[in-house]
Design a protein around this nucleic acid. Structure first.
Length: 335
DNA sequence: ATAGGGTTAG
């Protein structure tokens, strides 16, 4: 029996809380209080989150950039040298993509500017979020020209923006690009890829990507297209030229990573959000056993459960008729 | 005071 008094028969999917006025949110989110042993507590608000208080010369530069449309003149009026970190902050704080570009151009015009992958990541993300694909590709090419190599951060961001824009073919190309470069996805990048593939209902592809990641394997053939003709000719050509331009990153890790038996021990996620995404993936793919295994893994590894974990498990059980189990999860959360 | 993802369903 649910705490709100509903019987298990009434615990049927999403209609549950439409027809009942109980305040305990089973599908609406769990309260974190009192679950410190199992449930992740909300992160404390550090000054990183909300209070964007910068010191030194940054506030006045940011303010001036906000009110002044002439980026070059505004920046010229500050003669002091900016550190790479300060430059990152300034780039990040610009709202519009074109302003980001102009500020970046000014940085690069300074004599002592050193090309910086973090700066490129910030600029590329701004262009990606604004869906300025041509500008993004130009920036990418220039980045390579300046000898700046993309990192895991770069690829996670690219997969995210292309995936959110619904450009799945290009998303797959970025993943392939990363693989060709011999860059093994870290957990955030893997999680990002899984999320994008899941949202595109590419469940099998997502499953394979995760399984390969688990054993430290990079598979190149796994990302072939079913229908490459669907892609816009122009963007594909541009993409290929970019691809051909970037021949420098070929590394032996490509071979090592897939064939070595020594380091092919099983890799497990350690982030709650990763597990939640994976559990939802297998739930949506109808593979309940694997979803349940991941949940068990989570407990075994001591990874904190949170409201998403419970709601996802409850929904998976509920939507497949496992009402007793759904109820158990609801109670488990409540203990 | 460097950068990426942040999940459930309604």
């Amino acid at each position: 029996m649910m705490q709100c008094g509903c019987t298990s028969a009434e615990l049927s999917l999403s209609t549950h809380h439409k027809t009942h006025s109980c305040k305990r949110g089973v599908f609406l989110g769990f309260k974190p209080q009192g679950h410190s042993k199992v449930v992740a507590l909300p992160k404390k608000n550090t000054n990183k989150d909300k209070n964007k208080k910068y010191g030194g010369i940054l506030p006045s530069i940011l303010q001036n950039l906000k009110v002044d449309s002439n980026v070059v003149m505004t920046l010229d009026s500050f003669c002091g040298k900016l550190s790479p970190k300060e430059q990152t902050v300034i780039l990040k704080e610009q709202g519009k993509w074109d302003k980001v570009l102009r500020v970046f151009e000014w940085f690069k015009s300074q004599k002592d500017y050193v090309p910086n992958v973090i700066h490129y990541n910030v600029v590329l993300r701004a262009l990606g979020r604004a869906q300025k694909w041509d500008e993004l590709r130009l920036c990418w090419v220039e980045m390579a020209k300046n000898g700046v190599m993309p990192t895991n951060n770069t690829y996670a961001m690219l997969v995210d923006v292309y995936g959110k824009a619904g450009l799945m073919k290009e998303t797959l190309l970025w993943i392939k690009h990363m693989n060709l470069r011999g860059i093994f996805p870290d957990e955030v990048t893997m999680s990002t890829v899984i999320k994008v593939l899941k949202d595109a209902k590419e469940y099998d592809r997502a499953d394979r990507f995760y399984k390969d990641w688990s054993i430290g394997k990079i598979v190149l053939d796994d990302l072939e297209f079913d229908n490459i003709d669907d892609m816009e000719p122009i963007s594909f050509k541009q993409f290929l030229s970019t691809e051909l331009f970037c021949t420098g990153g070929r590394s032996n890790s490509l071979i090592d990573s897939g064939t070595s038996d020594v380091d092919s021990s099983v890799r497990k996620p350690r982030l709650t959000t990763t597990y939640n995404t994976l559990i939802d993936l297998y739930g949506k793919a109808g593979r309940l056993k694997e979803a349940a295994d991941l949940f068990a893994d989570m407990l075994k590894s001591g990874v904190a459960l949170d409201a998403f974990t419970f709601n996802t498990m409850i929904f998976i059980c509920g939507s497949h008729g496992y009402l007793t189990e759904a109820e158990a999860f609801a109670r488990y959360e409540d203990f």
